[in-house]
C-alpha cells in the first residue's frame, strides 16, 4: 500500500508543481496518472522515489515514511521501486546488457560494480529479463542502434533487474510512435497481472487509460482533481481535467 499525504513541491524558482496532493494506491493496482503537460505528473512520480525532494507532505509505503529516510536508506528503498522514463534514459553508447545491469546497482558492492564486475547470477538475470521482453539477441549491441520501442523495453528490463514491488512509469509511451504504445503497455500490464507489481503510470491518452488502468487519478495545475475508476471519467470530468477546449482523441 502506497499513501501520498499532502504532498507539495515548490521549485526554487517559485513554481508550485504539486499542491497538497493526497491519494492511495493498493498493492497490485495499475494506477493511471493523467493531466495536461505541466500538470505535475512527472514531479509527482519523481517525488515518490525522491528523485525530486518534496517540499512537504509524506509518502508512506508499507508503513515507512519515505520522506523521512536518510539518503543511504532511501537508496535501499529505491531498489524496490522501478522507474521507467519517457526518454528511456539509456546510456546510448553502452551496450544493451550493460544498461540493463545498471538496474542492479542498488544491490551490488560499490567497489566491485565500479570495475564492471557483475556476478554470473546478475548476468543471467539480465539475459532472462531481456528474453522476457523479446530482446535476448540484442544483448550485446549498442543501445543507440535500437529503435525507440526496443529502447523502452530495455528500460523496462533495467527496472526489472531491481526486482521491484512497484513500478513508476513516467509517460513511458509519449516518445514512441502511437502504434508502439500498446506493445509497451502490454508488458507493463503483464508485470502488473502476472507478477503482481503495483504500477503507477502517467499517460496522455484517455483510451489507453480505459484499456489498461485499474484506477486513475488526475492532476491539474498540481492539484488532485479526480480519483476513481477509469470508467468514471465522463465528459464533464474530462473537461474539468483538460479544459474546455480539449477534444477526446483516440489512438488505434
Amino acid at each position: 500500500m502506497l499513501r501520498v499525504e499532502h504532498l507539495t513541491k515548490v521549485f526554487p524558482n517559485g513554481t508550485v508543481a504539486l499542491k497538497d496532493v493526497t491519494f492511495e494506491v493498493a498493492d497490485g493496482e495499475f494506477l493511471a496518472v493523467i493531466g495536461l503537460s505541466g500538470s505535475g505528473k512527472s514531479t509527482l512520480l519523481r517525488c515518490i522515489n525522491r528523485l525530486i525532494e518534496p517540499t512537504s507532505g509524506k509518502i508512506i509505503w508499507d508503513g515507512t515514511d519515505l520522506t523521512a529516510l536518510s539518503p543511504s536508506e532511501m537508496r535501499r528503498v529505491r531498489r524496490k521501486i522501478g522507474f521507467v522514463f519517457q526518454q528511456f534514459n539509456l546510456v546510448r553508447r553502452s551496450n544493451v546488457i550493460t544498461n540493463v545491469l545498471t538496474g542492479r546497482l542498488g544491490y551490488v558492492n560499490t567497489a566491485q560494480s565500479l570495475l564492471n564486475a557483475f556476478s554470473k547470477e546478475d548476468n543471467d538475470r539480465a539475459l532472462n529479463n531481456l528474453e522476457r521482453l523479446g530482446l535476448r539477441e540484442k544483448a550485446y549491441v549498442r543501445a543507440d542502434s535500437l529503435s525507440g520501442g526496443q529502447q523502452q523495453r530495455v528500460g523496462i528490463a533495467r527496472a526489472l533487474m531491481q526486482e521491484p514491488k512497484i513500478i513508476l512509469a513516467d509517460e513511458p509511451v509519449a516518445s514512441l510512435d502511437p502504434v508502439l504504445s500498446h506493445s509497451i503497455l502490454k508488458y507493463l500490464e503483464q508485470l502488473n497481472r502476472e507478477d503482481g507489481l503495483t504500477v503507477l503510470c502517467s499517460l496522455h491518452f484517455l483510451d489507453l487509460v480505459h484499456r489498461y488502468a485499474t484506477s486513475a487519478i488526475a492532476l491539474k495545475e498540481g492539484q488532485l482533481v479526480f480519483q476513481g475508476l477509469p470508467q468514471e471519467i465522463d465528459d464533464a470530468q474530462f473537461k474539468a481535467i483538460y479544459g474546455q477546449e480539449a477534444q477526446r482523441v483516440s489512438i488505434i
Binding site: 522515489n49 528523485l51 543511504s72 537508496r75 535501499r76 528503498v77 529505491r78 531498489r79 521501486i81 522501478g82 522507474f83 522514463f85 526518454q87 528511456f88 534514459n89 539509456l90 546510456v91 545498471t102 538496474g103 542492479r104 546497482l105 542498488g106 544491490y107 560499490t110 560494480s113 565500479l114 528500460g155 533495467r158 527496472a159 533487474m161 531491481q162 513508476l168
Partner: peptide
C-alpha cells in the same frame, strides 16, 4: 537522463 535512471535504481554517487 541516464544519471536519473541509475539514481532511481538505487545507485550511489560513485556508481
Amino acid at each position: 537522463g541516464p544519471v536519473e535512471a541509475t539514481t532511481a535504481a538505487g545507485g550511489n554517487l560513485l556508481q
